[in-house]
Design a binder for these strands. Structure first.
Length: 443
RNA sequence: CGGGGCAUAGCGCAGCCUGGUAGCGCAUCUGGUUUGGGACCAGAGGGUCGCAAGUUCGAAUCUUGCUGCCCCGACCA
């Protein structure tokens, strides 16, 4: 993409409404624009990251055996009356009346709808296990939206719903999502720790929050440092096999948010391994049994000929919120420093002197990189060097290639690694190969 | 939902106390000089001062109501 033809409205000054760093940087880097309290338009750069994050989430859900569908944003109030949540949900639910005076709502979640879909088709235990998921916009009319996309009213969420014939099998489904979550966040370069969670109004008895560690996180967390060195399950994980050893490993170490914190249990952890940190919740998994299936009559025939309500679980990931968490975890004074797996572009190509001898080198590199599948943002604008460097540092592409008259005298370009600030002079061919390898290395 | 604050050009702000027909920096446009870390000079365009009433000869400025947004707290993916 040529920057001269792109839409990248960078702000030089800090918008006053943005208090925390991720919000500020997303506005400054031209990723989002607020349209209303807690409601954002996704500008081209922000959308690219959102789509990459979404893709990783989808791939790992599918790897774990979940099947993707797409449910609507607008739902009927009747469905929610069946579960009893229409009245219970309160003002957080955005209620809408259509032209026929029918009561509708903008979905804050989809348990009722997925249960309705399930009960419409599935009759037998032979069709189980089943895990259906979608990635869709949700709306919760928060009293006080804040922190940009970290706590918006409209947000993109992945929600998966598992259906099993009994609790033991439901637990296996839960374990599959647990492992999928470990992989999902790790692929984004995030350290996300599963922590025992309060099951809250949704009900149930088995629940974990996945918390990303970031110094600017909203909640305080306590953990055993040993948990940080646990291995992430590989791509070759057998999701049909028994995963309980993985779950046991991750849940046997102390890790809790301040609400669930048990000071005595924490004190039992080796003093040298006690860690107090801050974190951001990016995922939440629940087993809630037959709460909805019972209320809504979602039953299957068992092998013994009886009918039982299905055991369900739900598994959420805040996709749009993850962008905030990613920036909180990956930035410095100059701007964002994207991990390779979610960066809007892999490399920024800076032409120091458009209209001069740098043009053919830049054009060739641009073409070769794109052909090799490396995503390039080519700064071909005729502006000052300082402005180009500052823009690139702000938007945080992992690599920058600087092509200037100075380096070209010795046939070299500069390759800068954004996260470390490390610079090296290379031939254009060497830079090209290095970038192709870097893209290949992260899949 | 309790407490506090803000609303003036695309962005950041001054002017308001003490009413007199709107200003600064950045950005934008034109010309020139510059050119390896957010340049300089000269000029130009751009604002129903959030909305509505009221007071007044006259309101960005005073009064009342409304709306929007932000911050702290309680609550949450």
């Amino acid at each position: 993409m040529r920057l001269s033809r792109y839409f990248l409205p960078i702000l030089k000054e800090n918008p006053k409404e943005a208090e925390i760093v991720s919000h500020r940087l997303m506005l400054r880097a031209g990723m989002i624009r607020q349209q209303s309290a807690g409601i954002y338009a996704w500008l081209p750069l922000g959308l690219r990251v959102l789509e990459k994050v979404q893709k990783i989430v989808e791939e790992e859900q599918k790897r774990a055996g979940a099947v993707q569908l797409l449910m609507p944003t607008v739902q009927s109030a009747d469905l929610w009356r069946e579960s009893g949540r229409y009245d219970a949900y309160g003002k957080e639910m955005l209620r809408i009346t259509d032209r026929h005076e029918r009561e509708m709502l903008f979905g804050p979640t989809n348990e009722e709808m997925i249960t309705d879909i399930f009960r419409g088709y599935v009759r037998s235990y032979k069709d189980l296990p089943l895990n259906l998921f979608h990635v869709q916009w949700k709306f919760r009319d928060e009293v006080r939206p804040r922190f940009g996309v970290m706590r918006g009213r409209e947000f993109l969420m992945k929600d998966a719903y598992s259906f099993d014939v009994d609790q033991e099998k439901a637990r296996a489904a839960y374990n599959r999502m647990f492992v999928a979550y470990l992989r999902t966040f790790a692929r984004m370069g995030l350290t996300a720790i599963p922590m025992k969670a309060d099951t809250g109004p949704i009900g149930g008895d088995l629940s974990h929050e996945f918390i990303v560690l970031a110094s600017t996180g909203e909640s305080e967390v306590f953990l055993d440092k040993d948990i940080l060195s646990l291995p992430i399950p590989g791509e070759d994980t057998d999701f049909d096999g028994d995963l309980s050893h993985v779950i046991d490993a991750w849940t046997s170490h102390y890790a809790a948010t301040d609400e669930m914190h048990d000071a005595d249990a924490f004190a039992a952890v080796d003093a040298g391994k006690q860690e107090q940190a801050r974190g951001i919740e990016v995922g939440h998994i629940f087993y809630f049994g037959t709460k909805y299936s019972e209320a809504m009559g979602a039953k299957v025939a068992t092998g013994e000929g009886s009918e039982v309500p299905v055991h369900m679980g739900s598994y959420g990931i805040g996709v749009s919120r993850l962008l905030g968490a990613l920036i909180e975890a990956n930035h410095d004074d100059d701007g964002i420093a994207w991990p390779m797996s979610v960066t809007p572009f892999h490399v920024g190509l800076i032409n120091m002197k458009p209209g001069a001898e740098t043009d053919p080198v830049c054009d060739a590199l641009y073409k070769q990189l794109e052909e090799a599948g490396v995503e390039v943002l080519y700064d071909d604008r005729d502006t000052r060097a300082g402005a180009k460097f500052a823009s690139m540092d702000l938007i945080g592409l992992p690599y920058q290639v600087v092509v200037g008259p100075r380096g070209l005298k010795s046939g070299e370009v500069e390759l800068k690694t954004r996260a470390t600030g490390e610079k090296q002079m290379l031939s254009p061919e060497a830079a090209l190969n290095l970038l192709i390898e870097a893209v290949k290395a992260q899949g």
